Amino acid sequence: MKKLDKCIAIIPARGGSKGVPRKNLRLINGKPLIQYTIEAALGSRFIDQTIVSTDCPEIARVSVEAGARIPFMRPDALAEDHSRTIDVLQHAIEFYEGQGKVYEHIVLLQPTSPLRNSLDIDEAYSIFQQNDADSLQSVCPVMQHPFLLRKFNDSQLSPYQSVEDERLRRQDLEELFVLNGAIYIVKKQLLMEQSSLVGANNCGYIMPKSRSIDIDDELDLEVAEVYLRKTQHH
C-alpha cells in the first residue's frame, strides 16, 4: 500500500537568474531570499513535505540549513532559462512516485515572494479544500485598471480598452485582481495528466499588495527589505 501524504510544497530555485544575479541567495534583512519561503512552508499546518528543486549546490546547502529537503539535484535540462515550471513540478512528483510516495496536492511556492507567510498558505489551502477545487492561485488587487491604460499609435494616444461610458468614475470600476505568483495549489491529477496548473474548478486567494512583492530586480529587493524590517519589528 502506497503511503498517501496529502500535500507537498515544491520551491523551484535554479542557480542562474537574469534580473538579479544569485537572486535566491541574496540576503534580505540578514536572511537568504529563499529562506523566507522555506520557513513559510515549514510553518504551514497543511504541508507534509517541503522540498527545493535546484541545480545549484549552494542553494541546496542553504535550503537544507533552513529546514527544506533536497531529494535530488535538478537535471540541467530542467534548469535552462526557458525551462517550464510545470516540467519541474512533474519531475519532482515522478521522482517521489518512483519511491512509492504519492502526493495528492502540490503547492508551488516561488522563492521570489518573501512576504507571503504561513498564514497565507494555510488560508489559501483552506479555500482550496472547502471548494473541493482542482486548482488555486493567489492574487492581489490591480492598482492600474485596464480602463486607465493607454497605448500609442505613432504619436496618437488612445484607450487600450474602449469603454461604453467614458465618464465612469474610478470608484465605479469593477474590482480586478492580478496573479501575484506567491501561491499555486494544484491537484496531482491535473498537473500530471493535463500538464496544467489551472483546472475547471479554479479558486483564488486574495493577498494584500504589501505581501505580494515579487522579486524581479534590485528595486524589488530594496522594497521587500523595508517591508520585512517593518513586519519583524512588530
Rank of each mutant, 00 (worst) to 15 (best):
S195T: 05
L197G: 01
I206G: 02
R69P: 00
V139D: 06
V178Y: 10
C140L: 02
Y125H: 10
I185T: 08
L78F: 07
D154E: 11
K3E: 09
I127L: 09
Y125M: 09
V226A: 07
G15I: 01
S53V: 15
A79T: 07
P159I: 01
D120C: 11
A41R: 07
A40L: 08
A77C: 08
T54S: 03
Q49K: 15
N29T: 02
E166W: 11
K230Y: 15
L191I: 10
I206H: 01
D214F: 15
Y96P: 00
V178I: 12
D120G: 06
R169K: 15
N202E: 07
F72R: 05
S162L: 09
I106M: 07
R45V: 00
L149I: 00
R74C: 10
R167H: 14
L179M: 07
A77T: 11
I185G: 03
S162W: 10
L168N: 02
D81C: 05
D120I: 10
F46T: 06
H82Y: 14
R150Q: 09
L197W: 04
H145W: 07
I183Q: 04
S210I: 11
S126R: 13
V186C: 08
C56T: 08
Q129D: 02
K188W: 07
V223K: 08
N24T: 04
S210L: 12
I86Q: 01
L149A: 13
T50G: 08
T37I: 09
F95L: 03
K187S: 06
V198T: 14
R229S: 10
L33Q: 05
L168A: 10
Q99M: 14
P159C: 02
V52K: 00
L136Q: 01
Y125W: 04
I38W: 03
I215W: 01
S210T: 14
N131A: 14
P146C: 02
I10C: 01
L119F: 09
L115T: 02
E225V: 00
F72A: 04
G181V: 01
L228R: 04
V226G: 00
F177R: 10
A124W: 09
Y36G: 03
I70M: 06
V226N: 00
G199N: 07
T37A: 08
G19D: 04
R69S: 14
G19W: 06
T50E: 03
S162Y: 12
D216V: 02
M73L: 15
H91Y: 15
P12Y: 01
I70C: 07
D81S: 14
P141L: 11
H82C: 10
K230Q: 15
Q232Y: 12
R167V: 11
S158Q: 12
L157H: 04
D220E: 05
D216H: 11
H233T: 12
I34R: 00
T112I: 00
K187R: 15
S63I: 12
L4P: 02
Q189M: 00
Q35D: 11
I8E: 03
A60Y: 03
E39S: 12
P21G: 05
N24V: 04
A13M: 02
S63H: 07
E94L: 12
I38L: 05
Q189E: 15
